[in-house]
Amino acid sequence: MLLSEMKVVAPGSLTEALRWLEEHQDRARPLAGATDAMVRVKEGQWRSPIWVEIRRLPELQRMDQADGWVTVGAAVTYGRLLRSELMAQTAPLLAAAARDVGSVQIQAMGTLGGNLGTASPAGDTIPPLFALEAEVGLCSRGGGERWVPVESFFLGPGRTVRRPDELITAVRFAPQAPGERWKWQKLGLRGAQAISMVSLALRLQPGFARVAFGAVGPTVLRARKCEAWLSQAEAFDLATVRSIAQMAWKEVAPISDVRASAAYRQQMACALLERGLREVLAV
């Protein structure tokens, strides 16, 4: 398929968008901010005959809190996310990750739904969503709405449980507790505009811990052993923090690529956790 042969349709409503997907199935793809889509198209991939533009659909723009859930629409851009007062209060971890995505330009166009749709293990919003135990909302004309825990959403790099007729509509999660300690960390090859070599989302409350790593496995991974230790530890001294951080070594499965070796990535999972814990615990 040539670039010049691809069509972009611009439905005015969610229902209409879902109709396009239902009718065209694998021949149609959602198009949000295009920051991944255009890159892939230029590389000769993702040459979909029909692109269904969803960036401006009103149904995908929500950012609200009700009934114990914070809900963020799939077409919300990083820019909106990181400037949102609601996010600053209920999900500062996610907002911090959004602030580290690409550049201002990428943040202006790139969306949360697109980050999930691309399903890169280095997607920066995904570790926070794992740590928040978020659910991904999927919607189709035939099947209506379903909510999938984010941990079951990904099948592997670039693969998810989304069916071709479904759109990601939103993610939802319980808000972070007001006094909770949290940390987002990203290790890239430079300070800005870098794809993660390793990333970490960390949440800590007495008796509660969530640790999720990005870019060190086929999908984002939760470090459950570290979580167990962290939630059971009575006091944190440097030695305890170090030994818990070292545990991360056993919980990740990175590969070597052009950015870093597997061995370094594995060590850096520990390093980020140690650095993060020391900062939030001030040890």
């Binding site: 295009a34 920051t35 255009m38 890159v39 820019g79 201002v104 330009q105 202006a108 166009m109």
Partner: peptide, 9 residues
Amino acid sequence: EPVCACLVF
């Protein structure tokens, strides 16, 4: 909003 025009359809 500042965007990369090379990435916009």
